[in-house]
Structures are given as structure tokens and as C-alpha cells.
Amino acid sequence: MANKTDLISVNKLKVNFRNNTEIARAVDGVSYTVRREETVCLVGESGCGKTVSALSILGLIDSPPGEIVSGEILFAGKNLLKLGEQELQRIRGNHISMVFQEPLTSLNPVFTIGDQITEAIRIHKVIAPDELYERCIQLLKDVGITAPQERFNDYPHQLSGGQRQRVMIAMALACDPELMIADEPTTALDVTVQAQILQLLKSLQRSRSMSVLYITHDLGVVANIADRVYVMYAGIIVEQAYTYQLFHHPRHPYTQGLLASLPNLSKRGQRLYSIPGTVPNPAHKPPGCPFHPRCPFAIDNCRIQCPEMCNYGNEHLARCPVLYEKNPDI
């Protein structure tokens, strides 16, 4: 696993949102890497900058109010932040594609799904009409839509939520991208459909040997799908590890809190744990470690200095020196 080459690496990315009076540091120096044929999960609570960091990969941050302050995003040797709009358009959908959270609103209501999937191909490739149709039908089959020929001329409102998400995935797959960014694609779906979509993503990732950057707040999904995990909190990465390590040896108090707040059968009847407090407003982050107001292990130094990553070996890094001093071994 560790020998695979990097497909995309985000280095010290900082994204601010600005209004007249204050600056919200939504993403505050985030670095992560997705390797070839790997599924990476970005986990965190709402509003901690997961989606913003993914949107900035595709250059989809509206400016104003957003602005990318510093950092670089290297994809196939090119810094995406330095590319012009035209070059970015050639990459979007073609090399990097994205599946959105709300399948209900992510499809254009006035076009048939066939129209929308073929468009995704037509934008980037020159292709004959009947071949285009064949390819579109094959895509619909691949994402598990029954009777694709009949569905081809359906409008989005004629499909169920799960089917729409499958169509979205088909659109994202249309040009065989190297990287697919999935931004909470199962959040709006019910649990059985969610399981099917996850299974579908997994099998597609394997059969098409693409990389998936999966953004979620659901640790169950992480355990199911991820090879590696990055945990985000208030615009920074607080822990990164292989999935197995993260679930068995969480090294950051935030990750530990997240895992402790998962319901499970052995905790039946007990009160469910929750991390006290809420995510800080990105415009008013506490100084020092952003997690210290909610952290059970916080010491005075946490209030002053934002800690560096502590290395536990085997690519397991956590941003908590307090726990590292207590138990540095793996």
C-alpha cells in the first residue's frame, strides 16, 4: 500500500471566507494525499472545512466571498491552484469528478438523465452519437440502474433518491476519471440504499482502478469503505491513519471522542457519550489548539500554541503532544 504513487496531494491549503466585518478561516493549513487506487476518507463534524477543501481541488470556491490564501494542490505534477479556468475545465469531470450530497437537487430538473450523462462525455470527448448512447447505457448498467434503455429518457423527478444518486455517480464516472470526490453521497439516503451505494462505489473503485476521496461525518461509512482516514477539526487535520489503526488506536482526543459517541450494542441502556461543547465558529477560533475548550486532556500550553503532528509510525500522525507524551509507543 505505502508504495503506491501519489495521485493528488493538497499541501498547507488555506481558504478564507470574508465578509465586510470578519474573516472565517474555513480551511486553515490542511495537507492530505490521495494515492492511486486508494479510498481516502475525510471525516469531521459539519462546518469543519471538509467540503470546502474538496471544492477547492476543483477550483469551485466562489470568489468573493471565498479566497484561497496559500498552499498548493498537486495533481499529476501540476498545481491546480495555478491553472487558468480553461485548463481547470478540462480537468473537471475528465480527470477529477465529484458526486454531491443532495441527489435530489444535483440533477438539472428540465433535462432527461440520458441527456445529462451524455453531456458529461460530450464536453470532454469527441464521440459518435450511437457510441455515445451505448456508452451511456453501459454506464447506467454499471451503476445498477435497471432497464437503462427505458430510464434513459426519464426526467430526474421520475426517479427515486437512490436512483438519482446512481445517475450522479454515472455522470461522475462518464469520462473514467482518475479521482472521484464523493461529498457525503449517502447522507440524504436511507440506510439500505446507503449500503447499496457504498457497495457500488467500492466495486466501481476496484473495477475501474480509480481513487476515491470520500467526505463524510459517518464513522460507520469510514470503517466500511476507507483505506486511510484523515480526521478534520475546525479547518485542520488532527489525525491521519490507516482505517484499522484509527479505529483501534485513536491518538487524538477528538477522534477518541467521536468513536466513543458511536452507539453500539454493548452500550445499550447507557447514556450515549457526546463531546461537550460545539465546533468553534470559523471566524472566532480559540487560540492554540482549536480543540482545547472541549478536550478532557487540555493543559495550559494547549491554549497558547497550536500543536504539531506527532508521529506514531506507519503513517499514523496525530496532533496531540499531550497524549503522545503519555503513550508514545504504537
Binding site: L55, L60, N94, M98, E102, L107, H124
Partner: peptide
Amino acid sequence: EQDFVVAARALGVNNFR
């Protein structure tokens, strides 16, 4: 502001289109 516009941009559709 709707998602399908962002989705279209994410597919590499240009502004004019």
C-alpha cells in the same frame, strides 16, 4: 445557488454553456 449548477461546473462545463 442550486446544486446542479455546481455539479455542472464540477463536470467541466464552461460558463457560457
